[in-house]
C-alpha cells in the first residue's frame, strides 16, 4: 500500500488525510504540537455561522477513524528526496518514514503583535490580540485585566498586515471578518458596550460576510472608523488611549477604550523556511510556499511527489483551506496512480 506523510495536523492536514484514507492510502501525520486542529484549536467560534471551532475540528477528524496515525510533538529533522522517488521523512524521535508522497500542510503563525511596539501589546494591561480574545470567549469570561466588564472595546484591523514597516505587505484576508465577528460577539455579551473597529479597507469578500458587516452595524451598533492608529498609550485607570484619524471625516481624534484588540495577521509558520530549504521548495517574498502555478496547479511543487495545502501557501479562510486540502489529496491520488503505471 502506498504511504503518504502529511506535515501538520491542522484543518488542512486532517482534511487531506480523510480523502487519502478513503482512497486507500496509508497516511501518517506529523504534528509539531501536542494537539491537532492547528490554530483553529485555540479558537472559540468561527465565522460566518458561529459554529464551535472544536466541532469543526471534530467534523474534519471524524472520517479518519483509527486508520490514520498522528504523531504529536514531533519536529521534522530532515526531509530527503531519494533516488527511488520517495521522500525520507525523519523527525527527532521517529524512525525514518519513506513516503511515496509528501503533503506540506504546515499552516501559519499569527503575527507577533509585540513587534508593533507603538500599540503596547505585552506592555499595557488591556491590549490583547484576537487570539487572546478567543481564549477569553472559550473560557466564557471577557474581562479587563482588573476583572471588570469592558464598556468600550476597540478592534484594530491590519496589525502586521499591509504594513511595509514590519515587512508584511500582503492582506491576511481573515482579520476583517474576524474583527466583525468578535465585535458582534462582544455586543452579544455586553449589549451596552461601545465597540469600535478601526480599519483601512474592509474586505468582506465572501457571500455571507457583507451580511455580518451589515448586522454588526444594524443589530449591534458597532462603529466602524476608517483610520489606522498611530499609537496607543495607557491611562492612569489602565484604559488605553487611541490616536487615530477618522479619514472619512478628515478629523484627528483621541478616544479611550477599556480593551484594545489587535487583529494580528498571518505569517508563514515558523518551520516553513526550514522545510522549504530541506526539499528545495520555493518561498515567495512574503515567506509563504509557492506552488508551480497559482491558477491551475496550486497544490503542486517543482519537487516530484511533494504537494502543498492550506495556509502554508498564503492566508486562507477555513472553507478555502478545506477545499485546498481536498484538491491536494486528489492531486496526490492522481500522481500516485500515474507512477504505478
Amino acid at each position: 500500500m502506498k504511504n503518504i506523510v502529511i506535515i501538520g495536523a491542522g484543518v488542512a492536514g486532517l482534511s487531506a488525510a480523510s480523502i487519502l484514507k478513503e482512497k486507500g492510502y496509508d497516511v501518517t501525520i506529523i504534528e509539531k504540537k501536542a494537539y491537532d486542529g492547528g490554530n483553529v484549536a485555540s479558537w472559540d467560534r468561527l465565522f460566518p455561522d458561529s459554529r464551535r471551532a472544536s466541532r469543526l475540528i471534530d467534523d474534519v477528524k471524524r472520517p479518519l477513524g483509527d486508520g490514520v496515525t498522528i504523531h504529536y510533538d514531533q519536529s521534522i529533522t530532515s526531509l530527503v528526496k531519494m533516488k527511488d522517488g520517495r521522500i525520507g521523512v525523519k523527525t527527532d524521535s521517529l524512525e525514518t518514514i519513506h513516503a511515496d508522497a509528501l503533503l506540506v500542510a504546515s499552516g501559519f503563525s499569527l503575527f507577533d503583535a509585540h513587534l508593533k511596539e507603538e500599540y503596547g501589546y505585552g506592555i499595557y494591561d488591556n491590549v490583547y490580540t484576537q487570539a487572546d480574545l478567543e481564549s477569553m470567549f472559550n473560557a466564557g469570561k471577557v474581562l479587563t485585566r482588573s476583572g471588570d466588564a469592558p464598556r468600550r472595546i476597540g478592534f484594530v484591523h491590519c496589525v502586521g498586515s499591509r504594513d511595509e514597516k514590519v515587512g508584511n505587505r500582503y492582506c491576511s484576508k481573515v482579520c476583517c471578518v474576524t474583527a466583525v465577528k468578535q465585535a458582534s460577539e462582544i455586543k452579544q455579551l455586553y449589549p451596552d458596550a461601545q465597540v469600535y473597529c478601526f480599519y483601512m479597507d474592509l474586505r468582506m469578500f465572501e457571500l455571507p460576510y457583507e451580511d455580518m458587516y451589515f448586522n454588526a452595524q444594524k443589530l449591534y451598533g458597532v462603529r466602524f472608523i476608517r483610520g489606522r492608529l498611530c499609537e496607543a498609550a495607557e491611562k492612569m485607570d489602565k484604559s488605553v488611549v487611541l490616536k487615530v484619524e477618522d479619514t472619512l471625516a478628515g478629523q484627528t481624534m483621541n478616544l479611550s477604550v477599556d480593551m484594545l484588540v489587535l487583529m494580528a495577521g498571518m505569517r508563514p509558520a515558523s518551520d516553513t523556511t526550514r522545510i522549504a530549504t530541506m526539499l528545495g521548495l520555493h518561498c515567495g517574498k512574503e515567506g509563504f510556499l509557492t506552488p508551480v502555478d497559482t491558477f491551475s496547479r496550486g497544490n503542486e511543487t517543482e519537487v516530484d511527489g511533494v504537494f502543498l495545502a492550506g495556509t502554508c501557501t498564503g492566508p486562507k479562510t477555513i472553507p478555502q483551506t478545506i477545499a485546498d486540502a481536498r484538491s491536494a489529496a486528489i492531486c496526490i491520488d492522481e500522481y500516485l496512480k500515474k507512477r504505478k503505471k
Binding site: 485555540s42 503563525s109 507577533d112 490583547y128 487572546d132 477569553m136 476583572g147 494580528a264
Partner: peptide
C-alpha cells in the same frame, strides 16, 4: 515567533 508565545500573553490576571 510561534503562536504559543502569543497565546502565552497572560490573560488570566496572574
Amino acid at each position: 515567533m510561534g503562536h504559543e508565545k502569543i497565546m502565552g500573553h497572560d490573560i488570566d490576571n496572574t
